[in-house]
Nucleic acid binder design. Structure first.
Lengths: 222, 222, 222, 222
DNA sequence: AATGAATGAGGGTTCATTCAT
DNA sequence: TATGAATGAACCCTCATTCAT
């Protein structure tokens, strides 16, 4: 058993975890403080020792998870090697793992949709600290690809959103329809990347890519 | 002033409209029956004359709007003329008008995300009666294009979702970030259709399209 | 089908019947005007044409039934022939038929108990116009019996209540436990009359009774 | 002032008392939770900490009081000394004290009549755990008296109900007419016991009784 | 006379929040 | 720190009553 001091240091984190799960499952309004408390293994009163109100708990929960996720994404992106197309592909794979396989990314989207309306400053912060930087990473990637002649330059302006959309779309379907949505995710992802690169690459970029190697899943060079 | 009989015939519809607006604005749990009533210009009690419970009101509201939208989409699709690429482009333009310009499509997505969790049979019905048929329309369109040699056949399996995703993504961004999301929608849509067709068309399809005519909005042939 | 005029004349009575049934079944507070209306085959509004408020409807319903019952009891008592013991026996039999077999007498008791509290002037009227006269009939009967030497004179003061109590007790048991109370009513009644007369009769009265004839239902002389 | 812990232990009992009074006074439907709360000196919400719903509160209240009363009656009966007639007389005196002088027994009857309809399983339990055992006690008493030759054996079958009826009848009159019912209870009770024993005793039993002593209230031997 | 849509006050229940322990 | 009894505001829903038709 943990020492009391140790337990104490972990309490806020445990509550945040519990809160994220609870809010993600039912939404802000339908989640009771007691639900959160029960999940965290404490009583209602204890939460108020760490968080002023239900609203503050929600805000800190969302902030905590979005910061964690952004840092994670940045680290991931920094670690990729290869040409623009490879980087893009790797980033998209990462996105899918976060939005489709994990529930965290997906649930974060869900929370922003369900309850963002009632937390405008939270949304704003989320946009500034999470969404814009994340989209910026993709934009930069596309811009670098255009600069190197691999990507068609016309698409730099909004390509990031278009590139990313199918993974968000998949998350959304999972959010709404849950496991009952029968869908071959592997094939879905492959189709997405195929279509995207087909649309994105210049003839030169295409050559670079095939030169690179027989791509990912052994599919014919695009 | 309307006669009593006339008013009665219109009441349920007025309440459904008010309910849609109210639920869309705050979500199911945070919406009070009194909010709906006030919007509809009646008192709380009157709603219970037409709808058994808040839950039933929500279900009937969502059903009503999704049925209306599906019928609308079907009629639209039936009216388009032209080759597969033209049809796809027209359908996407339509989708954008419903998801991005209108709030109805967007809000329907929002409601499914926020509150679908607590209405599983509603979600199921929505999937069966709305989502699956709607995706089916796009799939059929792609399959026809592949059959005629205009579209690459590999993408038929999941192309519909990928094709549609950016419009849903845009809706989602508007749902979450509202008007504060600065984004040139015209350019976004053009970029989407450009990238998509670029990825979708076969060399033959490309030729057909350019032969067709200087396309839709006077943009350069893709 | 009845003529309109005829139906109209009967409406108030139909509503009173419906109201009695409804109130008896659920009590005043738990009965809705709509329940009464549905039973009477009219709509809520129609009741208000004949009765000012729910309270008034209740009062008139109870009054109507108690008057009817008292008149009935008086007529019955006037028609009995025979000695004091015979009269008493006949009256008790009548009481049982009204309190145990019929539901009307029983339900009237039930209504007085459940809702009398909230209708003090109704209770007062019921006492004055129904209960006191009814008990008076029995008292007079006992007094006559004592005067003729058939009944022991000591019991005249409270004998009426004691004599009547078992039939009311049976009603009460049926009110509370309903049909689930297994009880041989014939034997119960016989036991009651047996015990009562045994306690009531003087030696002379006993002789008169047996001389009178093999009593009522062919039971052995008491 | 009591400590918090002490108060907590007493709360449920206080609420049950308040609930019994409130329900007895107005019936289930007409009693508001706030009435109960006010009587108990707490707020509405506090009741819900101890009792799930108004229905449950009612059930537990009735159960609590009926159990208490049955135990009390059993203890009383066990403590009586003397012959069958003495025991019967003592038990009836006890019944009168509970049904006529106390309001608890009377009010319990009132509650069963007013609201039993809507709590069928409560009625069933009341019958099984209270009414049947209580009547059983009296039946046993009568059977013992018949076995010893004091009571006429014919009356054993339903004598218990007949014996008990006048005390219930008196309760009922008090329930309905309240204090406004002018009635000499002492004389009423004496008349009841007189009539009952007169009807019940065999010649032998009569002798035993007079031999026993100049009975209870100094009245002439029956 | 009768209908039934509509009102509005009221009551049961929930739950965020507090605070004595 | 943590508990959990208690508060009180708010919300869903019911239903007696009204009134235009």
């Amino acid at each position: 058993m943990k020492t009391r001091a140790r337990r104490k240091a972990e309490r806020p984190g445990e509550i945040l975890e519990a809160a994220f799960d609870a809010f993600a499952e039912r939404g802000f309004a339908a989640t009771r403080m007691e639900d959160v408390a029960a999940r965290a293994g404490v009583t209602k009163g204890a939460i108020y020792f760490y968080f002023e109100t239900k609203e503050r708990l929600f805000e800190e929960t969302v902030s905590h998870y979005s910061q964690t996720m952004l840092a994670d994404a940045g680290a991931m992106l920094a670690s990729i090697e290869g040409g623009s197309a490879e980087k893009l592909r790797a980033f998209l794979q990462y996105l899918y793992s976060r939005c489709a396989y994990d529930r965290y990314g997906r649930d974060l989207i869900g929370l922003m949709v369900s309850d963002g309306r009632n937390f405008p400053q939270l949304v704003e912060r989320h946009h500034r600290d999470f969404f814009a930087p994340a989209m910026g990473m993709v934009s930069d990637l596309l811009a670098a690809g255009a600069a190197s002649g691999d990507f068609r330059p016309e698409i730099v302006a909004h390509g990031a959103e278009i590139a990313v959309a199918p993974s968000v779309f998949l998350s959304l379907m999972r959010l709404i329809f849950g496991a009952s949505l029968a869908l071959d995710e592997e094939a879905y992802i492959a189709c997405h990347i195929d279509l995207l690169l087909q649309g994105l690459l210049t003839p030169k970029g295409r050559k670079n890519l095939s030169a690179g190697k027989a791509c990912g899943e052994g599919r014919a060079p695009i």
